[in-house]
Design a protein around this nucleic acid. Structure first.
Lengths: 254, 254
DNA sequence: GAGTGTGAACGTCTTCACAGCG
DNA sequence: CGCTGTGAAGACGTTCACACTC
């Protein structure tokens, strides 16, 4: 089955902290927007505001990549876009397959955010024979039987699972056996994979439950409403910090 | 500057850590599955395996809720389901509106994971007049003009945004003005909201970029492959821990 | 002067390991 | 004995504040 990958020595010597990696796409998006408006440079303060984080965090994050800024000036937008893209591995082409072309799978296939980065939908796969051949987002759906050959022929290493929960583990096993080493899982199940395979999970229902928790808490605090500093109308960037993490599952490096 | 920032009073006396809150839905799902199989009790070890975390973390998490286990035995499944549901606020009904009924919005409307918890889709809203009246997942789509009245009439406090990025902030503003205090955002934008409103973000493209980062790293490590302990076929639960967090944005309690 | 880069302080989350209870 | 519950230790992440550079 899996290649016996090594263990992670705990301290990633050359490594960029996971928390930082998770924010790089955020910075990249903000920078891309600036780039499209032909803004030449940004300060950490401005960029941080656009990305919804605070500037100290942003500077610290960038410091892990290297010293790409200019003191007294800020960061060169184009240069940073390139550096972050390279760090994230977006300067290369990543063929991706989406398995499970229901409502969600179709939404993913149509999602523009993939192509704009280095991702290319190499194939759509579904178990329903009636779907076979039917085009979704301009790409013909192929039957699950073809899964292995599609993966191998296209050198796919990233797979997206958008099947019902019951089918997810089985699909996952087949993807991994065929050579996929990174999986984005939308099915509400805990997938088990061999060492060396990364899984990230997106779970809609979990996100709502976390919101419900905070919502409930708010309701209970209607009383003691003011403590010290709490200007009612202070606008605040939302994406700032998001809870520790746990939410959307996880990266499991070898 | 130097000392004393009027921060959050440090010790949230009654508070459950965010990281723990984010895992409660995971435990709940695992417990529900056990409950359906009429399993009466579980040990922390078994439940942890089912949820994809380690047992120490699970016990610590539960300890914030109270002492619901029995030493030498484990946890009563039904009782824990109830306690966690209550803690998450799922024992009450949460009417939710989904704005933006494209592929993704439709997928969300059809998603079974909502109803099974305390969430009820109170309305589907779209800006396209051609969508109005058309049923999606058995619910007729309503026009954006009705947004405010829908929110108020149904006492909706949780909104889901599945619109294109360009419309998200505007929709968000209207939702908030109408009384929504928790938002789940699928649009690839940083939303800015007043204090007291929570926003969580799910961003598909960001998840893929994080996977690409790790994938790239793997490719570069093909060389030094063996260290010490690396049983090739060791199966591992995926959702264990997922990176620090940052990824999907954030909860911003008042 | 303006703004980056970063050591050090601080806070949060995870893991360990074992006391204590059924 | 088995397994929970939890202090204490340690890893990780964030924030502060300022030296340093342009």
């Amino acid at each position: 089955m899996a290649t016996g990958r090594t263990h992670r020595p705990a301290t990633r010597s050359r490594g960029i902290p996971e928390a930082t990696v998770a924010r790089l796409p955020l910075y990249l998006r903000a920078l891309t927007a600036l780039s499209e408006r032909s803004v030449p440079t940004v300060s950490s303060e401005e960029l941080a505001a656009a990305a919804g984080v605070n500037s100290a965090k942003l500077r610290k994050d960038f410091s892990y990549l290297g010293s790409y800024g200019t003191r007294g000036v800020g960061y060169d937008v184009e240069y940073l876009v390139y550096q972050i893209s390279r760090e994230l591995g977006l300067t290369q082409d990543w063929p991706v397959v989406i398995v499970g072309i229901g409502n969600l799978g179709a939404a993913l296939a149509n999602y523009g955010g993939f192509a704009s980065r280095g991702f290319r939908v190499a194939a759509l796969i579904d178990a329903d024979p009636a779907m076979a051949g039917r085009p979704v987002a301009g790409i013909p759906v192929q039957h699950t039987d073809e899964l292995e050959s599609i993966i191998m022929d296209n050198g796919v290493s990233i797979g997206v699972i958008a099947t019902p929960a019951g089918a997810a583990q089985q699909v996952c096993d087949r993807l991994v056996a065929a050579g996929v080493t990174s999986i984005l899982n939308f099915a509400p199940t805990v997938l088990s994979v061999p060492d060396g395979v990364d899984v990230r999970k997106v779970d809609l229902s979990i996100e709502l439950q976390i919101l419900a928790f905070h919502e409930q808490r708010k309701a209970g605090e209607e009383a003691a409403a003011d403590t010290a500093a709490a200007p009612a109308a202070t606008r605040k960037q939302s994406a700032t910090d998001q809870g520790p993490d746990g939410d959307v599952p996880a990266v499991m490096p070898a």
